[in-house]
Design a protein around this nucleic acid. Structure first.
Lengths: 351, 351
DNA sequence: CTCCAGTCTGTTCACGTAAACATTCTGGTG
DNA sequence: CACCAGAATGTTTACGTGAACAGACTGGAG
């Protein structure tokens, strides 16, 4: 069957590829394999000249330790799996960056898998794929509405979820979506707007749901009329589309967009229709992406502290790893402060 | 020393953690380990009822294959290392996303490492870290000016670099930076601008260098005056800072920014100074990030086809893996078309 | 010189898996 | 019934590493 399998690189006959092993180095240096191992792991009690001889042999053979064998022997991989929904979305990539950096500080690398949709089945697939990878812990960003109960995880794998609701089976860290959203809406009301419209994220998204609910609640608490909700898809394009409709309605004076990208698209549509921001319409976003400050006008928005979230996610994993237990009842919240810039103002006096 | 090392989970005495093994499953199912292996790898010639029995035993024990052992046995990891400079930067995250997706399609996962600066030493560090990880190939995004010769790579590790210059030691894929930049500058000249100013990326960046050189060359070819170059750092903030200066100079009517973020900051500064885009100043960016279309005004920019670049990077790795050879003389280019939107126009007639 | 403590190095073994080879079983043919 | 081909399963072995233990060497004290 495989007698024409192409040129196998080395190995007398047995296994494919892989470079020189610890044994080859040992032979060349005239020492035992164990001594080579000692040098390669961090040299406890190896005579300097022996060590040099070994290092020299390593260099000569171009030896690099075989990570698989090492991991097999040690029982860990020094690697964390990371499932993200959409790498592109600024919020996520900032969290990812923070996770990668925090992991690196602890000597861990990160194995990244993305899922097309936040559906439970897609996440399960991703978990499956990672399962077959070499990971010591698993971080899930934006579990959205997926119910982690259904995920077939190895029973002892430490997990941490970036989510603002406590989902009940895994420890979670999340921004204070509700507090941030309430502050955004209240800010607009305080400026004198009668009510606030809302461009929400997709309805299968947990954070979108939290923000929409907080928006509605804040309006109700203030005794204001709650306008019909508008559904976007997080993308600037969707904000633009919805904005084209909103721009026609003169009664719309304040809009809370569920993220900065949609706010950007919305402002685009308003400008295009000749409605000025914030003179005619005030706009608040969510996330505080790097560009938000440089939109025109600079965007008032709710800041998500992704860096901190990323750090805490890694911390959660490491804590479980160190204690050799799984946490399940932990839920941390990270503040989401309102950053007031120039896209909001009091409504124009009319009549 | 380690006699109080905490509760070790299982294992009669020997090794730490790790779940049930193939042997445990075999015992429970009343078959040999090899049969379990056959089921877990893809069942060639296992009687259906035996297979069911094995699967049942796996479920009962919560068995997941040990990836380290598997990788050791098979000699590969089905994993690709990815070194990126800044995950945040839109250009990079789009490439990363494409790489991850392409890798997934081929059954590979991606191990992501970021470097703080594109300096050769930082990249070397990253390689070191990945070296100790389990990877079959290595993709480096934005090698910038790092000279890959100095990287201590395992001699047989397939490498692919995302870079627009042919660096000579590893196969590279890159956008047509020069063509795109020339088109951008030429577009502004064709509109009637006397000359074009340039906000460049940092001077340790290869792509920034290519774009700046192409800009200068195009102006020279057209016999135009070449203004002093302005150095940014890729960030919108840096574009804004430089823009505050530029906005004061009435002779500036056209600016080519080396990326969209800086273009955004620039436009912010111009607006703030009361200079309108494109009426008073035309602006062209580079990258065509998702938001560029929704800036105000929508940004004329050079599109980088990150998706395609990501795909080809993975393809390059796989080709080397399949052929068991390293490529070194390959260099592919991906077109970078100019996308004309509304941030560019003919200069106002004066005098 | 003998003995001992300490330092350095070597030997043995197991980690979990899968390839190669060996064996058993099945059912059909002469 | 003997024989055989092919399917199904079991046995042996090696992948590269590092822990545990064992042995060899050093130099100083008695």
């Amino acid at each position: 069957m495989s007698n024409q399998a192409g040129p196998v690189r080395r190995g007398v006959k047995g296994h494919p590829k892989s470079g020189p092993s610890i044994g080859d180095v040992a032979r060349l240096a005239g020492v035992s394999a164990q001594t080579v191992s000692r040098v390669s792991t961090g040299a406890e009690a190896v005579r300097p000249e022996t060590k040099d001889r070994v290092l020299e042999a390593m260099r000569e053979l171009g030896y690099t330790p075989n990570h698989a064998a090492r991991a097999l022997r040690r029982g860990n991989f020094r690697s964390i799996g990371l499932i993200a929904h959409q790498v592109i979305r600024t919020g996520e990539s900032k969290t990812i960056e923070a996770v990668i950096e925090a992991a690196r500080r602890e000597g861990y690398s990160v194995s990244l898998v993305d899922v097309e949709t936040p559906s439970s089945s897609d996440v399960s697939d991703a978990v499956q794929r990672l399962n077959h990878q070499a990971i010591d812990g698993l971080i899930i960003i934006r579990a959205e509405t997926a119910t982690p109960t259904t995920l077939a995880l190895p029973p002892t794998l430490p997990v941490a979820v970036s989510d603002s609701r406590f989902v009940g089976h895994h420890p979670a860290i999340g921004a204070d979506q509700v507090g941030g959203s309430r502050a955004a809406v209240q800010h607009l009301l305080d400026l004198g707007h009668k009510t606030v419209h809302h461009i929400a994220g997709p309805d299968d998204s947990g954070p979108a749901d939290l923000r929409a609910t907080a928006w509605r609640q804040t309006l109700q608490d203030a005794g204001r009329k709650v306008p019909a909700i508008l559904r976007g898809s997080w993308s600037a394009d969707s904000g633009y589309e919805l904005g084209r409709t909103l721009a026609q309605r003169k009664d719309v004076t304040a809009v809370f967009a569920a993220n900065d990208e949609m706010a950007c698209g919305l402002i685009h549509a308003l400008h295009e229709a000749g409605r000025e921001v914030p003179r005619d319409v005030s706009v608040v976003g969510f996330d505080d992406i790097d560009l938000a400050e440089h939109f025109w006008p600079p965007l008032t928005t709710v800041r998500q502290q992704f860096q901190q979230i990323g750090n805490e996610l890694v911390e959660l994993i490491l804590r479980q790893l160190r204690q050799r237990t799984q946490l399940s009842d932990f839920h941390g919240t990270v503040a989401a402060p309102l950053i007031v810039r120039q896209s909001t103002a009091a409504p124009r006096k009319r009549r």
